[in-house]
Amino acid sequence: MNTQKDLINLLMQHSSTRKYTDQPIDEKTKQTILACSQMAPTSSYLQAYTIIEVTDPAKRDELATISGGQEWLKKAPLTLLFCADLHRSEKFLTVTDPKVFQNTELYTVAVVDATLAAQKALIAAQSLGLGGVIVGGVRNEMDQLADLFNLPERVMPLFVLCLGYPAEQLPVKPRLPQQFIVGTDAYPDKETDLTSYNQEVSNYYDQLTNGADTFNWVERCTYALEQKPRYEVDEFVKKAGFLKN
């Protein structure tokens, strides 16, 4: 990648990659991805996240099972679990109010830090010719995840980033029209008609699946919320020592 245009094209052409070639990711490439991940912005310099590379086939199998059978968790050349982590901060920082590690602000900081780090890792990987997918389905069984990776208190597993050299390139999924997302000096709450966007999403999946799936944006997002409410995440968050105030 040599030009500003290359970078913009990379960002604009993002699509999730779930099928990979047999080409391994060499150590130098992996370390470059991890180093870029660590250069993500971080609130108050806390770096409140942890990355766990998953190499054990048995643990990969368990991740795939927990997530509902997502095979790419087993087959991706590089599998990284990203966690929100206040354990390290609590261990090394001496503060006058120890309850600060239980408040909503630091929970938010840790989740945002981990998410920004994962996005940096994905962009770095894509710039090196790899593709990837972020899997939130591992949150289906958070207690199991915590046991599987020996997570201490105040560490919350968020998602897995799977990376590898793409065996296929899917078309870019259409995003919401910008007027729904971007406001000027106020929340953008004037747009209500999703007809055109719903049709665009329906057409996208119709072509992608040869007519097997024509659900639009409203239909598929409603289904996702009804099928995966994950109320148990709230219980895990508090049990792990977050949000106790």
Rank of each mutant, 00 (worst) to 15 (best):
Q23G: 02
V133R: 02
G241W: 01
F92S: 02
A84C: 11
G137R: 05
T94D: 14
F149I: 07
F180E: 03
V201M: 09
T21W: 07
E90I: 01
K120R: 15
V95T: 06
K59M: 11
G211H: 05
P166R: 01
K74A: 02
P57T: 08
P166D: 06
C221T: 10
E200I: 12
T184E: 09
R175S: 11
F149G: 09
K28S: 06
K244S: 03
Q169P: 07
Y49C: 06
D6T: 08
G183E: 10
M12Q: 14
L225Y: 10
S89C: 14
F215P: 05
I8N: 03
C36F: 15
V112T: 03
K228D: 14
Q179E: 14
F180Y: 10
T32R: 08
P157I: 00
L130S: 08
L80D: 04
T184Y: 08
K30Q: 13
S43L: 00
D22M: 05
K120W: 02
V201R: 11
K30S: 12
P166T: 07
D143T: 10
N198H: 08
T195W: 01
P57F: 12
P229E: 09
P24N: 03
A240R: 10
S127I: 06
F149H: 11
R154A: 00
C162R: 12
A240W: 01
P174S: 12
M156R: 02
Q102V: 03
T222I: 05
N103S: 08
Q179V: 13
D61P: 04
N9T: 10
